[in-house]
């Protein structure tokens, strides 16, 4: 059953990962490992959606919304970090039904508003238009959207991003084995947040 499935023990995934390492080695050993992984990360969110939950249009919508919530800046954004697939996986395998309805209800309302107002789906709208719609959703002014839908979606994107390999190792500073503890460490020495 899906809940008992441990992706880390999936031999196919291990194969895929070793394959990926091989490709990167061929491309050239110059790339810093996390950056190199980031280049591939859109292809490798760290799991496979085993029970597809969304239509292709819903996937495009989820990707567009995620990327506006955490955009690409000087570091990769939500799409590169695999957040859309993470959201689909969580909806499919983790969430209770009422939470699924909440999130999907919000996404549906966002898309419907884009269609009505701008004559195109959210994914096809300009960034300015997209931000205007998301601001309405955040302010609970979006027709047809469950009141808590945007905050829920926002939290999913935040969690998905900052728990991804890109979020942990590129956007934040990853210390798998710190080796010591310093309770008076200058923030200026890192200017970032440590992930755990």
């Amino acid at each position: 059953m899906a809940h008992d499935h441990n992706p880390l023990l999936d031999p196919q995934r291990l194969d895929r990962r070793s394959l990926l390492t091989g490709i990167l080695a061929m491309v050239g050993g110059v790339a810093i490992a996390p950056i190199a992984r980031a280049m591939q990360a859109g292809m490798d969110p760290g799991y496979t959606v085993e029970k597809p939950y969304m239509t292709d249009d819903q996937r495009k919508l989820t990707a567009a919304v995620s990327e506006r919530i955490i955009p690409t800046t000087d570091t990769p954004g939500a799409i590169a970090a695999g957040v859309p697939a993470f959201i689909e996986m969580m909806l499919s395998e983790w969430y209770w039904q009422d939470e699924r309805d909440l999130v999907m209800g919000g996404l549906t309302a966002i898309n419907a508003f884009a269609q009505t107002t701008y004559g195109k789906p959210f994914a096809g709208a300009t960034p300015v238009q997209q931000d205007a719609i998301l601001t309405l959703a955040m302010d609970k002014q979006l027709t047809g959207a469950p009141a808590d839908a945007f905050e829920h979606l926002r939290q999913m994107v935040i969690f998905g991003y900052y728990s991804s390999e890109i979020g942990c190792t590129i956007e934040r500073v990853y210390l798998p084995v710190p080796g010591r503890y310093d309770g008076a460490y200058p923030y200026a020495d890192v200017n970032r947040v440590f992930s755990s």
């Binding site: 996986m89 979020g167 992930s195």
Partner: peptide, 20 residues
């Protein structure tokens, strides 16, 4: 098995599904 793994390497990023 999960010693030293990042969140992205753990099923469901580390949170057991509530139903389970």
């Amino acid at each position: 098995p999960f010693e030293g793994t990042g969140a992205w390497e753990q099923p469901y990023r580390g949170d057991t599904p509530p139903a389970l």
